[in-house]
Amino acid sequence: MPHDHHDHDAHPHSLLPSDPALRVKALETILTRKGLVDPAALDAIIDTYENRIGPKNGADVVARAWSDKSFRQELLADATATVRELGYYGRQGEHIVAVENTPETHNMVVCTLCSCYPWPLLGIPPAWYKSDGYRARAVREPRRVLSEFGVVLPEETGVRVWDSTAEVRYLVIPMRPQGSEGMDRAALARLVTRNSMIGTGLAKAPS
């Protein structure tokens, strides 16, 4: 690709304003004027990820896994088909694998090469997930990273870090907290935090 051979100064993006806010505005204006972008579509995309698709989807899946044995088995066997039936499918969630935390294994997800994340289940990734530090350190020193999230695991628990290097997206099923027996699914879902489904947190204890 010609792109590979451009030196720094020749990158086309350098022709746009350097201030990022102005740069985005300029590109949107150029594309809109040519009929290549519909500003109302941009509003609709933003609204989707701000208001419709987010961690509440994943929390619903986890609460079902906690409260329904056969759902849990189906989820662990074929998460893509199982969550699709609930309507959780789409961009950046075409291939889902659910991994379950146990007293023996704590799962944690990262993408060291970019910032792959299960959008239909968790929405847009938080800034720390996309940070250079998390991408660099999660695979080499996961326990130190976890401690920065306030999570300290028992010595006998092994950490398994999933580096999302392909199009498979991972959902962590956190351990069901003690004291949650008898709670209904909606109440259980409220115990499931976004970070607990990435593996950098634990589910909340019932208050």
Binding site: V110, T112, L113, P126, A127, W128, S131, D132, G133, Y134, R135, A136, R137, V139, R140, V145, E148, F149, D163, N195, T200
Partner: peptide, 14 residues
């Protein structure tokens, strides 16, 4: 390709 690279400080969780 950042996996394992050294030189970063603590994560600031939101």
């Amino acid at each position: 390709d950042m996996g394992g690279r050294f030189g970063y400080g603590a994560i600031r969780p939101e």
